[in-house]
Design a protein around this nucleic acid. Structure first.
Length: 457
RNA sequence: GGCCACGUGGCGGAGUGGUUACGCAACGGUCUGCAAAACCGUGUACCCCGGUUCAAUUCCGGGCGUGGCCUCCA
């Protein structure tokens, strides 16, 4: 089956066949993190989803024929505020946060993007775009700001399906006095002393810094060109961020589109509630990674189609863990075999990972009945979406950080129990089993006489 | 207030104008000193109200519910 993708811009009834501009260089841009704090589990969703797409594109077009750009936003008012709050230099905050982000996404089994550009290293490109927008009268200077004049773009609002009239009517925010129209957005703004600042474009004397949207237009242009294939991100970015990116890029380059496929992942809730610091259910990826292997998070994310809303629950994590336990057990010492066609077709159908997982369950079932080919297929097929990347031994050895288990003590108890079993003192053997169970440890007596243990969740 | 999504069995979650999704849990069985794991087998569904149709969970309209955006939040 050919790859089909759903495009937010055209909103087709069904996902449409993907046709790259250049099959020798398939180009994808995904909005990356603003580096001011640990990534939460909602931030992890697009990272995982688009990693699956990246892997699939590499599979279809060849690893050297796919360029995946995921930016790092390291200039932003939230960053300034947080650095001030913590009393550390901005650069220290962004470097530290970036390092944490990198460690987290690696633990989630995500491949590094081809390019990870930083906003602060693309100020020149941003200024070039801004100058051109001013020259072409899509943007204007007012009180040391450069603003994009939305009225100059007739089809502004197409991505988010909003008309200018609606936006003006529904506006709830006080309009800055220097804006010509309430919907105009900032390309460049003046910096106060102490804020990050660069020499301003468009003849503005006061040093300033870029607005939020222009960085993505600049970095996409620099690394992917004027138009490219896929642009992705969370659904909350549709408006205003992506709408404004489109406006900037298309008006600068006079192109009918910025990207041919706009892909947006759905939102995430936690235990049926929206995730918010005020709700007290704000979960960072880092916290979860202390309690679960990264692949459990990854599988848990992929059990729901990327465009659907997802409810993140502890119960779901347990189920995902259990599934992987089983898969790992069946693929011990198995070399990857053939990619299952159902798997390939499901992932190719707008990343239908839940359906793909059903294909893996099918292989699991066959492998459980003793089929070596199915076990090899299970491994190869799981690899396509970045699962089963550890050895079974590594998987079995994984322990949550919070679990302070005295391994030697456990082994000692198991030995005592086996001695009791040998002496047919089953009462004592069961007492030890219960003792370990109370510690959260479950025993499994293997047919060959050995006993293994695992942590119950 | 405006715009946009989503609502499937106990739970998670695909899909479809008429035919078993799948997984977890549950229950029964095999195995086991007892368990666990594994394997075999079994059950329950499409938010509400209209409409279109021979036929709707699937299409259309309305309602209710949940969520997102309209405030530089994935």
């Amino acid at each position: 089956m050919v790859l089909k993708l759903y495009d937010t811009l055209t909103r087709p009834a069904k996902p449409q066949p993907f046709r790259p501009i250049d099959p020798k260089n398939v180009r994808m841009y995904v909005c990356g993190p603003t580096v001011y704090d640990f990534a939460h589990i909602g931030n992890a969703r697009p990272v995982i989803v688009f990693d699956v797409l990246f892997r699939l594109l590499r599979h279809l077009y060849g690893p050297e024929h796919v360029t995946y750009v995921r930016n790092i936003t390291d200039v932003d008012d939230k960053i300034n505020a947080r650095a001030a709050e913590r009393g550390i230099p901005i650069r220290q905050l962004t470097e530290e946060t970036y390092a944490n982000f990198n460690a987290d996404v690696a633990a989630l089994g995500c491949l590094p993007p081809t390019v990870e550009p930083r906003a602060t290293e693309h100020i020149v490109e941003m200024k070039t775009l801004i100058e051109r927008l001013v020259t072409n009268e899509f943007a204007y200077v007012a009180e040391d700001h450069v603003l994009f004049n939305v009225k100059k773009m007739p089809d502004y609002g197409r991505l988010s399906k909003r008309s200018l009239d609606e936006m003006i009517a529904g506006a709830r925010v006080e309009v800055a006095p220097y804006k010509r129209d309430s919907t105009d957005f900032v390309l460049w703004k003046p910096s106060k002393p102490g804020e990050p600042a660069w020499p301003s474009p468009a003849g503005i004397a006061t040093p300033g810094r870029p607005g939020w949207h222009i960085e993505c237009s600049a970095m996409a242009w620099k690394h992917l060109g004027e138009t490219f294939d896929i642009h992705g991100g969370g659904i909350d970015l549709v408006f205003p961020h992506h709408e404004n990116e489109i406006a900037q890029s298309r008006c600068v380059f006079h192109t009918p589109v910025m990207a041919n496929y706009w892909m947006h992942n759905g939102f995430l809730q936690v235990e049926g509630e929206k995730m918010a610091k005020s709700e007290g259910n704000f979960i960072t990826t880092r916290e979860l990674l202390a309690e679960w292997p990264g692949e459990v998070l990854r599988l848990n994310m992929l059990r729901t189609h990327y465009r659907q809303p997802i409810d993140w629950t502890e119960a779901g994590m347990r189920e995902s863990k259990r599934t992987l336990d089983h898969w790992y057990e069946l693929t011990d010492d198995v070399a990857p075999g053939y990619l299952c066609a159902d798997m390939h077709d499901a992932v190719s159908d707008d990343l239908n990972t839940p359906k793909a997982l059903a294909a893996l369950h099918e292989l699991r079932s066959e492998a459980g009945k003793g089929s070596k080919g199915a076990a090899a297929g299970l491994k190869a097929s799981a690899h396509l979406i970045g699962l089963l990347q550890m050895t079974t031994r590594q998987w079995a050895a994984w322990r949550p950080k919070s679990l302070a288990i005295d391994k030697a003590h456990v082994e000692c108890l198991i030995e005592a129990r086996n001695a009791a079993r040998k002496a047919k003192n089953f009462k004592e053997a069961d007492r030890i089993r219960d003792e370990l169970k109370a510690m959260g440890i479950e025993l499994e007596d293997k047919p060959d006489g050995t006993t293994i243990w695992k942590v119950r969740r």
